[in-house]
Amino acid sequence: MTAQSTDIATYNFAYLDEQTKRMIRRAILKGIAIPGYQVPFASREMPMPYGWGTGGVQVTASIIGPDDVLKVIDQGADDTTNAVSIRAFFKKVANVAVTTETAKATIIQTRHRIPEHPLTAGQVLVYQVPIPEPLRFLEPRETETRKMHALEEYGLMHVKLYEDIAKHGRIATTYAYPVKVEGRYVMDPSPTPKFDNPKMHRSPALQLFGAGREKRIYAVPPFTDVVSLDFEDHPFEIQTFDQPCALCGAENVYLDEVILDDHGGHMFVCSDTDYCEKRREEGHRGHLAPETDLASEKLEPAQ
């Protein structure tokens, strides 16, 4: 017997076999019916490493069809390498249309951000989740955390947040900030900055969460209450930035800090690249925006 290249590598539409898709689809339906509850599923090995979006990829592969338009972002950007890689994977195995425009996408797979452009009914936001259990850092045992969810026993989480306040004068959690869904389950929103938490609340889009290595799927249906945990005397608040985006001048968006030189020079730009480009196309200019038109900016730099 010899391994011939023709023997291997014929894959189903969207890579997963149909039985696997059915299993994931059933988990998704239960997740939607029990918002914020983590449904165990028999996650498969994917052709990319665990921790690199295998959960999100399995969810996307199970829901995607030939009519879908897919957008993939990582850190808010369509052109980060892992986003490029995942988008290329779906182009190859599902031959679907892809876009970078938030408004044109029917499925948006994301790591660490929610787009700035408001999502609409009919869109599905698929989150890549590394550690789905919001209580994991307080209690490493699944056997224990499962009990806490069953009994709605979330005192430990409040104690942790309150210790933060006692020690630092504020809640020192800046991303993966825990939320309560529809007044019942405490849920990890994936490591999005807490800036994005309010976008989850009563979003018109369906939000699906896939954690491949940890083998969990969960969901937030549209128009569902998603409330960030806080205290009356220390209400939840999001980060604010002192300056607008240096390229497009946008305010009230999440910004990345870009280091310009080694003398402490830096600038802040939109983390959502599509949002930033759209604004510049519309003529908005930040204080460091290049004078040249966008067309030349889109040229690829030397590798």
Binding site: E18, A33, I63, A121
Partner: peptide, 19 residues
């Protein structure tokens, strides 16, 4: 068409369950 028909039906159920 087992692959695409299953996807069509599932998406309808998913939409209906979500809304």
């Amino acid at each position: 068409d087992p692959v695409f028909n299953a996807q069509t039906v599932f998406r309808a159920v998913m939409e209906a369950m979500a809304r």
